[in-house]
Design a protein around this nucleic acid. Structure first.
Length: 338
RNA sequence: GGCGCUUUAGCUCAGUCGGUAGAGCAGUAGACUGAAAAUCUACGUGUCCCCAGUUCGAUUCUGGGAGGCGCCA
């Protein structure tokens, strides 16, 4: 199975310099003798309206670097790992057909694995089933649903903790939709773990990371900058447009949005606390930034845990990198000239 | 100055009717097959503010001291 001929994947924790790295590659494409186009593989930059907090490239950058996959969905829409992987593959094929090499930038663990290794053919998401499971969980608790799963798919159930609601729900959703005589265990037993499967195309993985100290500093500065750019005002406008229903959208799960939302509930009434006046000077504002910085760092830890298991063709330490100069490695040049 | 409350983990605080203590958050590590920036798991020795007294034994009771908060002056 080949979903793309040749693609670069730039992965690494938030604020490590992935985008700057990818942009530099595009700047120097002539020297490398090939054309590049960028494919967003970030789980939240798909959505129009959540822009500042998701660190989207600017409109000029979107055009200059030929980005695909940014602002393709409304904030009220939802994409899932399977549809996401399809999108990446289709886009890569189109880019390949133009004789260019796609650079997929971003990478949230599951989404990267889905794009890189492909998910098994399993029944899709089913919201009415999910509602039913959730209602049952309210009545009986997730450990009880875990017991139901043990009856339907004992091997899968044994892999899951009784409190792991997200995965128990998904496993039950699959089991309920499979045709008679087919079990989730029988499907999963045929394939290796996702991280151990080979890539579904010719992929070159570049990991960008830097020292903890520098990364923490960059995160803090970047968040500060997001506030200066009007992040709080952005959330206020989402509040005005969608009201409470925004809190149940997929895009609301992006780091920072729930925190700013509750901050607005608490302080938003004071006229001077409105989004456009947000300056990160008062204690409440500094506290908000700190909470989001903490959540971002926790995310960095999880990203590194994911990335540790993926192939590494090129490790880039961005600790002292200024975002422009780059020394190409032979392996990389060989991959491009193949 | 007087009165009251308070001092326990990095932070916010429980608690021990006297036998040296535990939650949440933070931190560290791990997992991850259609919510994934989500979700889940594991990991807890700290002069229990200081000094003295009572006691076999005090973080706990008594007295004094110091810091913090509040009210009255």
């Amino acid at each position: 199975m080949t979903q793309f001929k040749k693609a670069l994947f730039v992965v690494g924790p938030t604020a490590s310099g992935k985008s700057a790295f990818a942009h530099t590659l595009v700047e120097r494409q002539r020297e490398l003798g090939c054309a590049f186009e960028l494919v967003n593989i970030d789980a939240f930059q798909f959505y129009r309206g959540v822009s500042i907090g998701t660190a989207k490239p600017s409109p000029e950058e979107l055009q200059k670097y030929k980005y695909h996959g940014v602002d393709i969905l409304d904030v009220t829409e939802t994409i899932d790992a399977a549809r996401y992987a399809e999108f990446v593959w289709t886009t890569c094929q189109e880019v390949n057909a133009r004789g260019a090499v796609p650079i997929c930038v971003g990478g949230s663990g599951l989404y990267l694995r889905a794009a890189l290794h492909g998910l098994d053919a399993l029944p899709p998401r089913n919201d009415s089933l999910r509602e039913m499971f959730r209602a049952s969980a309210v009545a009986w608790g997730w450990p009880e649903l875990h017991r139901w799963l043990s009856a339907l798919a004992p091997i899968r159930a044994a892999e899951l903790h009784p409190n792991d609601k997200t995965r128990i729900e998904r496993a039950l959703e699959i089991a309920f939709q499979l045709p008679e005589g087919v079990t989730l265990d029988s499907i999963l037993s045929k394939s290796a773990r996702l991280s151990e499967q080979t890539s579904v195309g010719d992929a070159f993985l570049i990991h960008v990371d830097c020292s903890d100290e520098v990364l923490k500093e960059r995160i803090y500065k970047r968040l500060h900058n997001m506030f200066e750019q009007g992040w709080v005002a952005e959330v206020e406008s989402l509040q005005a447009r969608f009201g409470q229903s925004f809190t149940s959208t997929q895009s609301f799960r992006a780091i920072g949005y729930p925190a700013i939302w509750s901050w607005l509930q608490e302080f938003g009434n004071c006229s001077e606390a409105s989004g456009s006046n947000f300056k990160v000077t008062k204690k409440a504002e500094v506290d908000l930034l700190k909470v989001i910085a903490t959540q971002t760092w926790q995310y960095v830890r999880r990203q590194r845990t994911w990335n540790a298991k993926e192939q590494k063709d090129w490790l880039v330490d961005s600790t002292y990198w200024n975002g422009t100069t780059l020394q190409f490695i032979d392996k990389f040049v060989d991959f491009l000239s193949k």
